[in-house]
Computed example of a mutant assay.
Amino acid sequence: MAAVSERTSACMNGRDLAIVAIVIIAWGSNFTAMKLALDELPPFLFVGLRFLILLPLLAILPRPPVPWWKILAVGTLINMGQFAFLFAAMRADVTAGLASLLLQAQAPLTILLSALFLGERVHGIQILGISVAVAGLVIFGVGAGGNLTRVGLGLILCGALCWAGGNLVLKGLRGVSMLPLFIWASLVPPVPMLALSLTVEGPEPVATIAALSMQGWVAVVYVALISTVLGYSLWGALLARHKAADVTPFALLIPVVGIATAALVLGERLTPLEVTGAVVIMAGLALSVLGPRLRPV
């Protein structure tokens, strides 16, 4: 979701707002699809299979004009690290709705890492937002139980940290289309994830894949194609026509859609304490992401 263009444009028209809605629905509902797939697949095997499905697209998408080390870094941090931790958490004890929310900790983590390693300035309101988001995470940590354990929270935060690290690599890639980049970065996860699955998840990954139900296959294909191919294609088109600052705040709606979809499809419900934590985290994320734009106000 990193910016790929800084072109200015007029306010979004109805068509572009509809595209935003499609992307947010695709990315928000993606967590429910992940949960359905994880009912039948162990996490590391799921990561490997998800990106293995995307490899045929290398034949039609030329390699982006990006150094190989950056492609491999994106593949290692975002495609592999993020989803290995996320799927492990969701397989164990984290609901799809909470996963969609807690993974957005990548936003304040990206701000902190950018300040630490790139020397970027952090505004006071962003520090406030990060502090509020941390307070929300503490609420989840204190109330860990039914929908989330401390181990699950830790795993998701590790996934968010991997995503944030990948965002630092993406920051220097202005004008690069995200879809080809993420497809080529899909070269990284299949072999190590399938090898890890063979080592720790069981000796018969092929048999596990062969036993997938139709629902399981639909969920895997949805995660691989709808979330990645459709989502990044449309998101990239929006970034090509509008300033990144006008597009990226819409990503704050992803956990809203994620929690709603999980409630509708999976019947997930948040406890009162989890609702409080979710509201606090969303407030912190809003301040972190929108902070620099709110300062003049």
Rank of each mutant, 00 (worst) to 15 (best):
I24N: 06
A73M: 08
L109H: 03
F44W: 14
M90S: 08
I78H: 00
W69H: 14
F83P: 07
P43C: 01
T76L: 14
A21C: 09
G75C: 09
A92S: 14
V66Y: 04
T95S: 10
A26R: 06
L58Y: 05
G75Y: 04
A96V: 05
G81T: 06
P108F: 13
L109S: 02
L98N: 04
P42K: 01
T95N: 00
S114H: 04
A33D: 09
I125A: 07
S114I: 05
I25D: 04
L102C: 04
A73E: 06
F83R: 07
L101Q: 06
D39K: 12
L49Y: 00
A115W: 14
I78Q: 09
G97A: 01
L113C: 03
I53P: 02
N79L: 13
L109I: 14
H123A: 15
L103C: 01
G97E: 03
Q106K: 00
I60V: 15
M34C: 13
G48I: 01
A115T: 05
E40Q: 15
T32E: 02
T110F: 12
L45E: 08
I125G: 09
I127Y: 12
R121I: 06
L54N: 04
E120H: 09
P108Y: 12
G48K: 03
V23D: 12
L116P: 03
A105G: 15
P65G: 13
Q82H: 14
